[in-house]
């Protein structure tokens, strides 16, 4: 077992945890955290392959992609957080109500 394989297997587990969290968590904040965990899994997957394909240095493309991806994910998470806070401010709801 190579080192990168530990991480790529972990990445799949993290992705699944995040996915489950998005579907099953109730509180807005937890759903948002779950999406970031999903993202963490995906990025780990990318970087583990970069390590595998290393020559004199690790494959730089996945690194660059992950940096881009992290920033994009953070921007959306910040937006989601703003939405969640605003909803709480206006209605006092902390999770999705099912009647709508």
């Amino acid at each position: 077992m190579e080192i990168y394989q530990i991480y790529s297997l972990t990445s799949a587990i993290l992705f699944v945890i995040g996915l489950g969290g998005v579907f099953a968590a109730r509180h807005f904040i937890k759903k948002i955290i779950a999406t970031i965990i999903m993202g963490g899994g995906v990025f780990l997957c990318f970087v583990s392959f970069a390590q595998r394909d290393a020559l004199t240095f690790a494959d730089p493309v996945p690194h660059a992609l992950v940096i881009t991806g992290i920033v994009v994910a953070v921007a959306s998470a910040a937006f989601a957080l703003a939405l969640a806070r605003r909803i709480y401010q206006l209605t006092g709801e902390e999770s999705f109500t099912n009647d709508k």
């Binding site: 489950g20 579907f23 709508k100």
Partner: peptide, 14 residues
């Protein structure tokens, strides 16, 4: 429709 709109059921559908 409201069942289909619950996250749990969306997950099951997924």
């Amino acid at each position: 429709e409201s069942i289909l709109r619950r996250w749990e059921f969306v997950g099951i559908g997924f």
